[in-house]
Design a protein around this nucleic acid. Structure first.
Length: 110
DNA sequence: AGCGCGGCTTTTC
DNA sequence: CGAAAAGCCGCGC
């Protein structure tokens, strides 16, 4: 889809692109950042459909509890692990330390 | 700790 | 164009 206005998905990708290497964020945070605290699932749906796999590092987005969640990219969830680990994010038992790698300093307005 | 329900956007028929 | 299904969640019970 390609609405003329900046749609939800557009903002989701925008925020995701802001995540620096070695940091991660959660679907819930993204949703709240966009004004939809309950749209976590929608965010997942959007990232899953990710039409910009190169521009948008959707692998840097994990669940609110620290688990990676899922990944529809090539290689599946495994790739997500590799990518994060390769970027410096320490993963303990399928989990990310949100207390140290959580990034939420998104720019207020683009 | 595990299960179920709710809330949201995008996509497809 | 309108309606229905789906999806990498979140949170409560």
């Amino acid at each position: 889809m390609r609405p003329t206005t900046k749609s939800f998905s557009q903002l989701v990708y925008d925020l995701t692109k802001q995540i620096p290497k070695g940091k991660v964020t959660t679907y819930g945070i993204l949703a709240r950042r966009l004004g939809r605290p309950k749209a976590g699932r929608a965010v997942g749906r959007i990232l899953g459909a990710n039409p910009h796999p190169i521009v948008v590092p959707c692998h840097r987005v994990v669940k609110s509890d620290g688990t990676l969640g899922g990944y529809s990219g090539r290689g599946g969830i495994r790739t997500k692990f590799e990518l994060l680990g390769h970027e410096g994010v320490e993963i303990r038992n399928d989990r990310v330390d949100l207390s140290k790698f959580l990034f939420k300093d998104f720019k207020a307005k683009p």
